[in-house]
């Protein structure tokens, strides 16, 4: 498997200074990289490059990223996924692909990962609850996978579903949300080079609580769009309602782009608290990715299409 390093949008230089990055390399070494999953090493951290440019945003520490999660399948408090997600069975893992595409089917994870180049991408992650992180993901662009299934011209939307397995995802026996968790993107959003399918973070396989073995990362949208532990991909001509839309249409729209100007009844979206820091900072339009994605919404009223 080829490994390269690409840093879309959040340039490495923007994110981390050398010392930090070196720390991280040591950290990864300590963890022992090249973790083996399904007989294939799906992530190998890229250790080759050093950043020398100035620091703007530092990485959120590994512990916070893996012990402060929303993954309601394992409980609704932030620590619950860390404590409970070990019951998730990630081997074997299959992903069903259906709908408006030439190559539907039931694909094993090995097959999906075959030939993919795992990159490291450092992205901001902004939760609708008003906190944020900077996470070094490992993964590949969603577009590179979706193209393989050859979506037809009718494929206007892509929807994803989390595994539905109440026995191993205990909280799915509760009705806090409608299961399985479902989220979707417009096809052009899905094909945007920023949109990532993550297989790991900090050069390590994804911990279960972070959405193992494969999760979506859409850095310019609120975190709940970045669906975890994907078991199904559907190409559709029309929109469906996502789990959060079903739970509360007024608060959660289809787009859910990070937007400091659109008020949310519970949390101010104009500022955010970076985990590990106390004072809040201003939230950026599209979470700071306007340059890459603003064109997708040209002419749209983003207050209406929240």
């Amino acid at each position: 498997m080829k490994i390269t390093k690409t840093n879309y949008a959040l340039k490495e230089s923007e994110v981390t200074e050398e010392s930090l990055y070196l720390d991280r390399r040591q950290f990864i070494k300590k963890l022992g990289y090249g973790t083996v999953l399904l007989g294939t090493s799906i992530i190998t951290p890229s250790l080759a490059k050093k950043s020398t440019k100035s620091l703007k945003e530092e990485l959120t520490d590994y512990k916070s990223i893996t012990q402060y999660n929303n993954f309601y399948e394992f409980g609704t408090n932030k620590l619950a996924p860390y404590e409970n997600a070990h019951t998730l069975k990630t081997t074997p893992w299959n992903i069903i692909v259906e709908g408006e595409c030439e190559k539907p089917g039931n694909y094993s994870l090995e097959k999906i990962l075959k030939g993919m180049t795992i990159e490291e991408r450092i992205y901001r992650f902004r939760c609708v609850e008003g906190w944020s992180m900077v996470i070094p993901w490992n993964g590949f662009s969603l577009a590179s996978l979706l193209k393989r299934f050859q979506p037809t011209s009718k494929a206007k939307y892509v929807y994803f579903e989390t595994l539905h397995d109440p026995e191993n995802m205990p909280n799915q026996q509760q009705d806090h949300l409608e299961w399985p968790y479902i989220e979707g993107l417009r096809i052009d959003e899905a094909m945007n080079p920023l949109t990532l399918l993550a297989t790991g973070l900090y050069g390590k396989d994804l911990p279960n609580q972070n959405g193992a073995p494969l999760r979506l990362v859409v850095p310019w949208k609120y975190g709940f769009k970045s669906i975890k532990s994907i078991a199904k991909i559907r190409f559709l001509e029309t929109q469906l309602e996502s789990s959060w839309q079903k739970a509360n249409k007024v608060e959660y729209g289809f787009y859910s782009n990070v937007n400091p100007n659109v008020n949310h009844p519970r949390w101010s979206q104009s500022r955010e608290r970076r985990i590990g820091k106390y004072r809040k900072r201003k939230t950026l339009m599209f979470n700071g990715y306007a340059e890459e994605v603003a064109h997708l919404y040209k002419g749209m009223d983003l207050k209406q299409n929240y």
Binding site: K63, S64, Q67, Y68, K78, L79, W131, R273, I275, G276, Y278
Partner: peptide, 8 residues
């Protein structure tokens, strides 16, 4: 010991 978001 208050987790990742102590102020919360």
């Amino acid at each position: 010991n208050l987790g990742a978001n102590p102020l919360e």
